[in-house]
Write a protein that binds this DNA or RNA. Structure first.
Lengths: 193, 193
DNA sequence: TTAACCATGTAAGCGGTTACATGATTGA
DNA sequence: TCAATCATGTAACCGCTTACATGGTTAA
């Protein structure tokens, strides 16, 4: 259900077409909630059917069209209500720690390979999130500046502070995963073979 | 696909019925990979159909039966092959950090509520994982001792070391989430209102 | 005129959730 | 005899993945 609210969070800033939304999405909220376009377009249709957003067909060139979406008052209310409800935490399902817990069942080389890939994976995420953090500090994220333009001055500080807070958490998590896997590599070495 | 290998990891230690497997599961690998019985029973049937395990019907009382499952050589090979393959990391989809990034859209009270629940959630996980860690250190986990009984002495150290490694990682992650959310509470306070 | 980009989807399949369903056995 | 526990599922639904599909527009 989070996809819907991730979309609303962006659309509340101002109307967008599905295509533009998807672009903005991948540059902002997509860093915490990934969604491919094959999921976004149908979700927009569903949200329109549910009265949360309104789509307006616009001409583009001779025959082309595109559909601009605007959040309705009902959509806004739904978003704000969601912000007040507790998150439902999914049960743990962690493939990396599952594998880690049974590494004695494979060769040291396969164990090292797994850990090296884990490091590479999280270094990739870390780079994304650190990049976002600097964009936030510099106000150089296009989506964020678009938001700040429609945000009263009194709210700007909060807006930036919470974004920084969220991305700092992600950065720390990535660093933790990397440090953990590095210790794993040491462990494999120390166990010999 | 991980469920299948989580099941194999347990069943490789020795034959179990679906019911017993499910019990052992929730006390060991279930701490990293949750699965309800409504998922386990059908998966066992599928694995049997795929030739990875073999089920043998046993009498229980007058009319009762239960099905004991044993890993086949094909199942063992499949498990070991999986241990050699790279994990496929899912794209990020993190509801808590999604919400955190947009907390300016709600009231300070709702923000605090979210953060307090986040702390409670991870304190719960932390307790589970710390409990498992002490069971590992004390060799007081039934599933682990069952494994160690069929493990050559030379492998025991590795078996324990990797389990400890995995759970330490989880414990650290839980602590990180808690510390992050606590900082969030301070942030809400410092932003006033 | 051609490539890059704009624009929007459908369809099949899979893993997981939730709720429901049924009956046998064992020990107090 | 009654409750706890043993034992094993089915069915509907939902979100997500992957692959495929189609056509228009714009600028070099």
């Amino acid at each position: 259900m989070s996809l819907r609210y991730a979309i609303l969070a962006i659309l509340r800033v101002g109307p967008l077409s599905g295509y533009d939304l998807q672009k903005q999405f991948s540059q902002s909220v997509g860093h915490v909630w990934h969604a491919p376009d094959s999921q976004i377009y149908p979700e927009l249709r569903k949200m329109e059917a549910a009265g949360l957003i309104e789509g307006e067909e616009q001409a583009r060139g001779q025959r082309g069209t595109r559909r601009m979406y605007t959040v309705t008052p009902a959509g806004d209310a739904d978003y704000l209500a969601w912000m007040q409800t507790p998150l439902d935490y999914q049960r743990v399902r962690d493939p990396a720690h599952l594998r880690a817990a049974y590494l004695e069942n494979t060769t040291p080389e396969a164990a090292r390979d797994f850990l090296r890939r884990h490091i590479a994976q999280w270094e990739g995420e870390l780079e994304q999130w650190e990049g976002e953090l600097t964009h936030i500090e510099n106000l150089s994220n296009p989506m964020l500046t678009r938001r700040l333009n429609v945000t009263p001055d009194s709210e700007r500080e909060r807006t930036i502070a919470y974004k920084r807070f969220a991305y700092e958490g992600l950065v720390e998590r990535a660093r933790l995963e990397i440090a953990w896997a590095r210790r794993g590599l040491d462990l494999v070495d120390s166990l010999g073979d």
